[in-house]
């Protein structure tokens, strides 16, 4: 069944692609089989992560980047992530509203995803969906994160180039020195650059980035855009292209992708192992006496975890 769906997707069938995305998103038991068929086809697409605080203009900029990439003859896949309600598990996914001009373009596939309890700015399934879009034949994949603060860095381990979108109100020089996303973005964009404070933020950012020793030989440029007016979009696209060329020429693209695959394996292992162990534990299949003792306070959780890992096939070291 998954094989047929993959084959159908490879003929360019959007509905088959959409069904496969859903399978990856609900962590279906068929995912390993799907991925086995898709993996030989991977690596052709270039993936750009778009991140930044809520309301910075990520969706609007993404919309304009799609338009420009289409003019260059590239096909585009978009993953737009919005937050899941921690209370109900539901979500309102509204990034598409900004991308209406592309709904009927067969060269554009847009998928809205809910973060589903994941805290890194993407959803667990995002990396799997990037693979599907790559195999489907998209030239460019844009991944838009939920509105983030300073430490939601998932997108860096998923994308080839990471773009951080800020607005003039995003903060003064003190804010910009803080850790997290500021340390790892490849390109900085000050959107809504017609507002007060844009030039000052640009100066501050540039100064900070020059001080930072660029160990990989890349000093992230600070661009300004007004997505709403379509200003600065060509420059942003060209800066992405320049970064891409530089990563390819220096071999860093290969290194980055290797690191990302390694990270993906570790994340997946952690997620699945935890789910499996927790399920066993909560169903009372193993260690039921231990849980009661921890609840009573007669055994400490450190010792309990050690014992559980030893009993689960010698996982304790």
């Amino acid at each position: 069944m998954p094989v047929e769906l993959v084959e159908k997707m490879l003929t360019g069938d959007q509905r088959a692609l959409a069904r496969l995305v859903s399978a990856v998103e609900r962590q279906s038991a068929e995912v390993p089989e799907i991925m086995q068929h898709v993996t030989p086809l991977l690596g052709r697409a270039y993936c750009v992560g778009i991140t930044g605080p809520p309301g910075a203009g990520k969706s609007t900029l993404t919309d304009r980047l799609i338009a420009h990439a289409r003019q260059q003859g590239e096909t585009v896949g978009i993953i737009a992530v919005d937050p899941t309600s921690p209370f109900s598990g539901g979500a309102i996914l509204g990034d598409r509203i900004r991308m209406q001009q592309h709904y009927l373009d067969a060269g554009v596939y847009i998928r809205s995803m809910a973060s589903r309890g994941h805290h890194g700015g993407l959803s667990h399934a995002a990396k799997g969906v990037i693979k599907l879009l790559d195999a489907f034949g998209k030239d460019l994949i844009l991944v838009e994160t939920v509105g983030v603060g300073q430490t939601e860095l998932d997108v860096v381990a998923a994308a080839d180039t990471t773009v951080l979108i800020l607005v003039p109100e995003s903060g003064d020089a003190i804010q910009t020195i803080k850790a997290g996303i500021m340390e790892i973005a490849d390109l900085f964009v000050i959107n809504k650059a017609d507002r007060d404070g844009a030039e000052r933020l640009q100066r501050d950012l540039q100064m900070m980035l020059h001080v930072r020793h660029a160990s990989d030989g890349w000093c992230p440029p600070v661009l300004s855009t007004q997505a709403h007016q379509d200003l600065g979009i060509v420059e942003l696209y060209e800066a992405i292209t320049t970064h891409r060329r530089k990563l390819s020429e220096t071999g860093q693209l290969t290194t980055r992708r290797r690191q990302n695959r390694r990270q993906e394996l570790l994340d997946l292992l952690q997620q699945q192992l935890l789910a499996a162990l927790t399920a066993q534990f909560e169903n009372g299949e193993t260690h039921s006496g231990l849980l009661a003792q921890v609840e009573e306070g007669t055994v400490d959780p450190y010792t309990a975890v050690q014992q559980m890992l030893v009993e689960s096939g010698g996982l304790w070291r």
């Binding site: 109900s88 979500a91 309102i92 009927l104 809205s112």
Partner: peptide, 21 residues
């Protein structure tokens, strides 16, 4: 909003859409 509160994922596409869109 009510659907979200019921644990459903809602995609909203905005105003004035053609049936094709």
């Amino acid at each position: 909003l009510a659907l979200r509160d019921a644990g459903i994922e809602v995609i909203y596409t905005g105003l004035r859409q053609q049936p094709e869109q």
